[in-house]
Amino acid sequence: MKSTRKCRTRVTGLSPTFWLRAWIVVSLSERELHGYELISSLSELFPNLLSPGIGGMGRGYRILKDLEEEGIIIGRWDVEGTGPAKKIYRLTSEGEKLREDIIKHVEEMQDYINKFLELTSKRF
C-alpha cells in the first residue's frame, strides 16, 4: 500500500518555492534587474519549477511581490525609453543578510545530500 504522507520539503529547503526565491535573491545581489528578466532566467535555469506561459510568469511575479512585501527586495518603476514602464528590483540590506543565510543553508544541505546519497548507495 502506497503512503499518502507527504515529505515536508518546505522545512528542509527543498521546495520549489525555496529555490525560486533563493535564485531571485542571489540574482539581485549581482545587479538590479526587471521582473521579466528575473522570471525569464528562472524559467531557463529551472524549467521544471515554473510552468511555461502565463502561469509560470504569474507565479514568478507573486514571488517578487512577496519578497517586496517582506522587505527583502525593493522595486522602482523605470519609465525611461520606449515601451511600457518596467519595475526594476534590487536587494535591501535585509535581502543581503538573507542571501548570506541562503548560501549557508544550501552549503549545509549539500553536505546532508552528499551523506544521504553515500548511505543510500551503500545499501542498494
Rank of each mutant, 00 (worst) to 15 (best):
G81Q: 07
L67E: 03
E37N: 06
K104E: 13
P47A: 07
K65N: 13
K97C: 00
G53V: 11
L50C: 10
V106Y: 03
P84W: 00
M109S: 15
I103G: 01
D111H: 07
H105N: 12
P52W: 08
S40A: 12
G53H: 07
W77E: 14
M57H: 06
L33M: 14
D101W: 05
T82G: 11
S93K: 12
E107I: 05
G58T: 15
V106M: 12
V106N: 04
R99H: 12
E108H: 06
K87I: 13
D111M: 02
G95K: 06
I39F: 05
L64C: 07
M57E: 09
G56F: 05
I73C: 06
E68Y: 01
G71Y: 02
S93H: 09
K86H: 06
Q110C: 10
G83C: 04
G56A: 11
E108W: 00
I54P: 02
I54Q: 12
I103F: 07
E108F: 00
G58H: 10
F46A: 05
K87T: 08
Y61F: 15
E32A: 15
G81V: 01
R76T: 15
G35A: 14
P84S: 13
D111N: 11
R62L: 14
G53K: 06
E107M: 08
G75N: 05
V106I: 15
R31Q: 11
R31T: 10
I72M: 08
D101C: 03
I88L: 13
S93L: 11
G56H: 09
Q110T: 15
G60S: 09
D66F: 03
T82P: 04
G81N: 10
Y89E: 05
T82I: 09
S43I: 02
D111K: 13
I74A: 13
S41I: 05
G81S: 10
D66W: 04
F46G: 01
G95N: 06
D111A: 11
G58N: 14
I103A: 01
L98E: 10
L64R: 04
M109I: 03
L38T: 02
R62Y: 01
E96R: 15
E68N: 12
K65T: 13
R99K: 15
E70Q: 15
G83N: 04
I39L: 04
E80V: 08
G55Q: 10
S41F: 09
R90F: 02
R90C: 11
G71D: 03
G55D: 12
R59S: 07
Y61H: 11
L45M: 08
H34T: 00
E80W: 00
I63E: 00
P47I: 12
G71A: 10
L49D: 05
R76W: 00
E44W: 07
G75F: 01
V106F: 05
I103R: 05
K87D: 03
V106G: 05
R62V: 11
L38C: 04
G95Y: 08
G81C: 06
I63R: 00
N48A: 09
L50G: 06
D111Q: 09
I74S: 13
Y89V: 10
R59K: 15
S93D: 13
I39D: 01
A85P: 15
G55K: 12
D78W: 00
N48V: 14
G35L: 09
L33Y: 08
D66G: 02
